[in-house]
Amino acid sequence: MKYRVALKNLAKAVLVLFLVTFSISILVRWLPGDPIEILMPFATEEGRAALRAELGLDINVVQYYFSWLFDLLRGDFGVWYASTGDGGGVPVRSMLAVALPRSLLIMLYTMVVSIVFAVPLGIFLAYRAETRTDKTISNVLFAVSSIPSFAIGLALAFVVGVQLDLLPVIGYVPFAENPSEHFRSLVMPVVSLSIGLIATFSRLLRVDMIATLREDFVTMASSKGLSNMWILWRHVLRPSSSTLMTSAALQMGALIGGAVVIESVFALNGFGMLLTTAIATRQYLAIQSLVALIAIAYIVFNLIVDVLYAVVDPRVRGGRG
């Protein structure tokens, strides 16, 4: 039964992926302005025809879509045109090889840090629900969640980076090159991204936990003489984590392409920067492939969370079977 659920989810995911990527192909075609005119404004007729063929504009959208899809499945993400449009560019894949690991790591660290801090904080707030402490902290968190991450980033860079001289203010160091520098280079970006998420996550968790705390099984657990901490962590947290997990999945997807500002502030240059550059320089194939990757990321993270959720809450397993 479990496998059937998983298979069904997978099938759904693949369908969504098809729809998303196919819509992108159509949208790209619907865009006003001739891509050839934009990519090669001064090209000769032969040059235009060549680029037209390469961008698949000379065939119908279905054919084009499948040729792009098969390229993608073979790991060919298209070419990043350097205005020449005839192979003078760089394979998007090699650019991804640089940018994607960075973004994935930043996303991973950010999620880990956010969850690690948000969960105890949310638990604490739920435990103290409606007291003055809770109200004060909740209001502060609300305010914090509306501070843009780049503002936090710049403030950190100035105070921690320049004034205290503790951490580098720009640049990314790959883990393989120097593990300690790798972490040092990512502390401030990850903290900047995490602060807002911690605020959001802990508030979500607080609400769900307060609801769960009213459940009979919580009273039952305390009537067994268990400590509050034990009850909060072992009894209340898991059944209260669905909203948090759903939100985390969305944030994971969003962080892949959406950390542009922080990537820019700390000169990390990950996936987000790659995508904005692709858009700014009208890299049609790259845009389509990158957007498809983001869609895949969303779907994969949602699948992961679905699975995790089923692990965390057996009701889900039973319910769907």
């Binding site: 459940e215 009979d216 657990a221 009894h235 059944p239 009701r315």
Partner: peptide, 14 residues
């Protein structure tokens, strides 16, 4: 204590 509703008094996720 033994609770009224065994449906809700046991933690469903453990």
């Amino acid at each position: 204590m033994v609770f009224q509703d065994p449906m809700t008094a046991l933690n469903p996720v453990r």
